[in-house]
Design a protein around this nucleic acid. Structure first.
Lengths: 209, 209, 209, 209
DNA sequence: AATGAATGAGCCTTCATTCAT
DNA sequence: CATGAATGAAGGCTCATTCAT
């Protein structure tokens, strides 16, 4: 956790630092990211930095946490009444909201992707282990509920389904941005999402039999 | 490509270096990996290193290439007569073979995963661009053939399917080794593979309609 | 340009570093000069060095610039009313002042000689290109003026004359310090200067015809 | 001196090595020149190199010596009956021959220039001190003779005149190649040479008074 | 006579962190 | 709260030379 001094800062300064750090960590691996560059770009002194954060890892953890927070806040705003939706319409909303979030705050997604996919297992544990935003928990609950309500095949393992969905939601974004100009609107994206959802639906829904 | 001097080395030494380097690069990002550590662990002098490889990237590229080579060699040995198999049985063999390879040479998979998932697009291109082992090409061809033979839904985009399968094949290994002791035998694994395949099959095969 | 941190240093330290660097670069070619030696002799840490200068070239450029600055400052102090002098008396003053400068700050002259005479044309351009102390411009102007006032033969190319004078002014110093003990006073020197000037005068002045 | 083994080599190989080394040393300062590059470009093994030359300096000295030898050989071929010429016609021939030599063997001139102008005095002494081709000796003798024959002003110091001429002969080449395309023929050059000679003549010849 | 693997010192540069003010 | 000078370890890489074969 950043030190209290950081939170005492005027909002403008605090956000400037956050933004610059986000930029650095989302474009470089943890070890390659440079405090030197951060303080320079944020226009603060080295000494100040160490008065806000106890060390590099402290800042990093803060950003990772904030990324989770922001994403959840965003998703909750996008998917109102999500507990009244059926599973697949919900999933569709979830995917689209995920893509929208990525478009509006690409740094956060990059940051999180980076740690999930590229840092060593040990390092990941060290950083995320203490965070409360372990993304999957929420989804597993939702899958379980859907299965209980007969929307999903009984024989499938909910953990596995949740895992599969998470992977697909990341993959779909990768796939999309590998092919398209990210500033484009969402039409092309929806097509892919719908294809992917159709496959998933045929694959895991009960009605399918 | 490593210099000729590297290939002139006694096999034992050459393999020792390869092994140590593999260990280093599969456990650290490219930039974080250290030549210093490699030469120390491999018990060679820094000067020698640069007589074998022209630079860090040279060694890295060599390993990435070798990983592709080894994996293909392994898969070809595992999946004989693969062109006589139907699509889903083939896929099953492919997944299992992939897992087996990971078990026998976990470093190579980690290495390749790392670059595919975590290094910057530009860096990836720089390293893999010149390699002949671009994994997806082979799979896309195979998917197209399956679709022509009526095994897959016509409306689905082969590139997307291939992409999906590749992602799943990686995910499945992640999932498995996150849950199980990797030295265990394959029984538990097969269950998961079969679940996943069942989903895929329901999702993309033609007979399903 | 050195970083601000360098100029914030206590004068003693700043001058110590400058002096040590000057010593290093004036006795070795650019590439042969060693930052390691500089920091060691100046008794600063390597890390500090890079807080003062962005890199080796930065320091080097600073010295070259400073050499130009110092020389011009010195010459202006020595040759007051230089625009009221006739050409050859002026030249005599210039030569003598040059020698005096060399005696009082031999490092600067050595430094500048070194780059003018020995580094590759491309490197020279890279370093001096951006400097405002391109020595010849001033002299060419002065030669042109002298020619217009009928002091020099009309048929001679001013650029060539300026070039010739510059070369001679360097040569004369070389010659002198090759023969004499540099701590001696200037008497012997004046003889040589006068001989050289006499030759030049006979060679290029108009009254000569 | 190179070891006997070097001279036992087939001429082709010996010349190849010489050429490559010349290329390296004339384009880089002594310390920057690389044995590694030389053996690579000359296609010989590291071990062989050290069987031909006892070390880097040995090779370097050999080249410097050879440069002197070649230049003298060339000049002697160009300026036949030079002892029957008067001083200024001789000087003109000398300058032109110098330029021609530079055009035909630019590497040698670059090599010699480099050591004369850029290496430290101590290093120069170490290399050239032992050489028999100290260029000036020959010229001083010639100047003395000219003075005795009344061609030059009595009051001028022959050493100084010889020094001056040497400097000019180098400067003139610098000046020319800074302005012109070196592949051009000699017409433009002759003009400059003649201007320069005219200055010199007015400056130092006796008839001038 | 020829080879080429081995070596360690040295190169310039970047880094996260400390601490006195 | 803010500052920024100081630091030494570590980074990748090049070098001339030796020596066993």
């Amino acid at each position: 956790m950043p030190k209290q001094t950081f939170f005492n800062l005027p909002a403008e300064k605090r956000e400037r630092i956050t933004q610059v750090a986000l930029d650095e960590f989302s474009n470089n691996s943890y070890h390659r990211s440079s405090i030197n560059r951060i303080v320079e770009n944020a226009n603060i002194s080295k000494g100040s930095f160490y008065q806000y954060f106890s060390n590099k890892k402290d800042l990093y953890r803060y950003l990772i946490d904030k990324a989770g927070e922001e994403k959840i806040k965003f998703l909750q705003k996008e998917i109102v009444d999500y507990d009244k939706l059926e599973f697949f319409p919900f999933l569709r909303k979830l995917f689209l909201a995920g893509i929208k979030f990525n478009q509006s705050s690409p740094y956060y997604d990059k940051l999180v992707d980076r740690i999930y996919r590229s840092e060593s297992e040990q390092f990941k544990e060290e950083i995320i282990g203490e965070s409360k935003y372990k993304s999957n928990d929420f989804l597993i609950g939702y899958v379980k509920k859907a299965r209980e309500q007969g929307e999903l095949k009984e024989e499938l393992n909910p953990e596995m389904i949740a895992f599969l969905i998470t992977e697909l939601s990341v993959s779909i974004v990768d796939y999309y941005f590998k092919m398209k100009d990210p500033t484009e609107d969402l039409e092309g994206m929806m097509e892919i999402v719908d294809d992917m959802l159709e496959i998933l639906k045929s694959g895991i829904s009960e009605d399918n039999s």
